[in-house]
Design a binder for these strands. Structure first.
Lengths: 342, 342
DNA sequence: TTGTAGGCGTTATCAG
DNA sequence: CTGATAACGCCTACAA
C-alpha cells in the first residue's frame, strides 16, 4: 500500500539543492537559473513526481474540491446534472466529492460537516425532501462560504440558485395540448410542498386561463410518489369516475405520463387520437415507447454546468455574491412527439 | 470565505493546556484526567470544533476517501452502482470522489493521477471503452495499491473483480428464446474488447450448442455504440440482407434491444409473434415500452456495495490480496416480459 | 541565484 | 497526568 510517492525532498537530495529551490524551479519562479530549472524538471519527470495535493490543501487552506449534495444518484435528471458538474469541475481543475442524502435531513447535515472538515472550496446542493429548515445552510452563507443551490432551492435571501423554468415549461406543454384541440386536460401534479410542483401547476392553470378556459380544480390530481404504477391506478380511476371525460393528461413527470398512457390504452382509448399525453423531464425512454412521448425537456447537464461555473467563479472570487443576480433560470424545451399530435 | 475553523490550538489556548493534551482528551486517550477530558470536550463542543481532515490525511498519509472511475454517470446501471458505493462508503466513514471518463483513456489516466495526488485510499474502476492496455493499473497493483474493478474488468492476474455473471445471464436469455420456439436468434453484441461482451456472446453461443443448434457466425453482429439508433439501423440491414431470416434478437443491452424492436416493427413484423426480443440490464423503461421488454437484470446496487466492501476491507487490511478469491460474480435474473413470450 | 526557517493542523514520541 | 518537539509535504518570507 505504501506508494512511496516522490516528494520535493527526494528530488532536492538527489540534486543536492534545497527543497525550496526545487519547489521554485518546478513553478518557474523568477530568480532560478535556467540550468537548475532544467535539471529539476528533468529529474522530477524522470522520478514521476506528483505534488501531494493534501499537503497543498493544508498549506493553502483549501482543497480544489467541490462537494455535491444530491437526494438520489439513481435518477435520470440528477445523474445528468452530475455529469454537467463533473465536466466543468474537471475542466477547471477541481475534484468532485459526492454524497447522496437519500432524502434524509441528517445525512444532508452530516455531509456538510464532513465536507467542511475536508476544506471543501464550495458546495452544490439540491436539498432533501425532509429539509424544511435551512439554518445549516444560512449559517455558512453568512460566513461567506460559497454555496449554489440547484433544482430544489430554498427561499433564502442570499441564496444563489439555478433552476429550470418550470412555470413556462408547463405553460407551453398545456398550450400545445390546447392547440392540438384537446379541451379537458387533467394535470397529474407532484407533491405540492415542492416548489417545482407548484410552479408546474401554475403554468398549467395560467395556460388554460390565458386561452379562455376555466380551470377545474377536480382536474388537478396529485400523484405523490411519481411512479408509473401510481399514475396508472389514478388515471384508471379518473377515467371511470369523472363525469366530464378527460381527453388529455399533462403529467408532472414522465413516469406518471407513462402510467397514464398505459391506463388509457387499457381503457380502450387510443393515444393520441382519443387522448393526448405530455410528460415532464424528457427521460431517455420518451423516444422509445409507443407512441413516443411528448415531454418538457429539462437541461440537466446545463444546470449542473452552470451551477458549477457560478460556484467556481465565486470560489475564485471572479465574482462577488452581491454583484450577481441571485437566480439563474434555464429554459425548458417542449419536445413534441407522437403522444400529443393529432 | 474564511470559515475560521476552530483548531485544537484554539481550545488549548483557551484552556491553558498544551495542544497534545487537547488532542488526547478528545480521543479518550488513557492517562488524561477525567476532569481535563470533560473540560476539553465541553469547550470543543461549545466552540463547534471539527477536526481538520486534511491535516489528518497529511499526517496519516491517507485520506479516508475512495475514488470512483466510471465511464458515464448518466447511465441507469452505473448510477445504480454509484448508489451502492456511496451507501457503503458513507456507512464506513469514507468519502467518495467521483470522475467519469466519458469513455476516454486520457481521462482515465489523469483521474488516477489526480486521485493518487490526493492520497486516495483505494479506487473502484470500470474502465473506458478506449482502454486496451492496463499498465496504468498494473503498476499500481504491483505496488500493492488497492483497486477493485467492477463490471468492466481487465484480464490481469492480480486484479480483484466484481462482475455480474454475464455468461449465465446470456445463456439463460438464449435458452428462454429457444424454449419459446425461436430458432434463428441474432445476437447484437457489444464491443469485443470488453470482457462483458465476450462473456455474453459465449453464453449465447453455448446455449445454442447445448440445445443442439449450430451457431452461425453471421448471426453475431457487433453494435459498438450500444445506442438504439445504431441497433435500429443494424437490424433493418439484417432483416433486409440475411437469407436465413432471423426470428429473434438477443441484444447485449436494452437500448439496442429497443432499436431492434423498432426496426422489426417498422419492417412489419410483430413482436413477440414474429420476432422475439430480449435485452440486457433491465433498465427502467423495460416495463414501460410496448410490448414490455424481457431483459436480464443486473444487481447494480449490490455490485457497487460489494466492490466497496472488498475495497475497504483491503484498505483496512482486514483481508490480504492473496488470501482472497480474486473474483466475485453476482447472479443475474432473467425478467420475462411480453417481448419474448408467444 | 539559492538556502533557512517557520507554519498549515494533527498526532506520536519522548520527557518531565 | 501533561508538555515540548518533531514530523507529514509544501510554500514563502527573509537571509545570504
Amino acid at each position: 500500500m505504501k506508494l512511496d510517492q516522490v516528494t520535493i525532498k527526494d528530488i532536492a537530495r538527489e540534486l543536492k539543492v534545497s527543497s525550496s529551490t526545487v519547489s521554485r524551479a518546478l513553478k518557474d519562479y523568477p530568480g532560478i537559473s535556467d540550468e537548475t530549472k532544467r535539471r529539476v524538471k528533468e529529474l522530477a519527470d524522470k522520478m514521476n513526481y506528483r505534488p501531494n495535493a493534501i499537503a497543498l490543501s493544508l498549506q493553502k487552506g483549501r482543497s480544489f474540491t467541490i462537494g455535491v449534495i444530491i437526494p438520489e444518484v439513481v435518477h435520470f435528471f440528477f445523474s445528468t446534472v452530475i455529469s454537467g458538474i463533473e465536466e466543468v469541475a474537471f475542466d477547471r481543475g477541481y475534484k468532485v466529492i459526492l454524497t447522496q442524502t437519500n432524502e434524509k435531513l441528517v445525512r444532508e447535515k452530516s455531509s456538510i460537516d464532513t465536507m467542511l472538515a475536508n476544506q471543501i472550496d464550495g458546495v452544490l446542493v439540491s436539498y432533501s425532501k425532509e429539509t424544511t429548515n435551512f439554518d445549516h445552510f444560512s449559517q455558512l452563507l453568512d460566513k461567506g462560504f460559497p454555496i449554489v443551490f440547484f433544482d430544489r432551492v430554498p427561499n433564502i435571501e442570499q441564496a444563489i440558485t439555478v433552476t429550470v423554468d418550470d412555470y413556462s415549461g408547463a405553460y407551453e406543454a398545456t398550450k400545445h395540448l390546447l392547440r392540438q384541440g384537446y379541451r379537458n386536460i387533467v394535470h397529474l401534479s407532484g407533491p405540492s410542498n415542492l416548489n417545482i410542483s407548484r410552479e408546474r401547476q401554475r403554468g398549467y392553470t395560467n395556460a388554460l386561463i390565458d386561452h379562455g378556459f376555466t380551470p377545474d380544480p377536480e382536474f388537478i390530481v396529485e400523484c405523490t410518489l411519481g411512479t408509473d404504477d401510481e399514475a396508472q391506478k389514478t388515471t384508471t380511476e379518473i377515467l371511470k369516475s369523472f363525469k366530464k371525460k378527460p381527453d388529455a393528461f399533462f403529467a408532472n413527470n414522465d413516469m406518471a405520463a407513462v402510467g397514464a398512457m398505459l391506463a388509457c390504452k387499457a381503457a380502450g382509448l387510443r393515444v393520441p387520437e382519443d387522448v393526448g399525453i405530455v410528460g415532464f423531464s424528457n427521460w431517455q425512454f420518451c423516444s422509445m415507447i409507443d407512441p413516443t412521448l411528448t415531454s418538457v425537456a429539462q437541461p440537466g447537464f446545463n444546470m449542473g454546468a452552470k451551477a458549477t461555473e457560478i460556484l467556481l467563479d465565486l470560489v475564485e472570487k471572479k465574482i462577488q455574491l452581491h454583484e450577481f443576480s441571485n437566480s439563474v433560470v434555464l429554459d425548458t424545451e417542449l419536445l413534441i412527439r407522437k403522444s400529443s399530435v393529432r
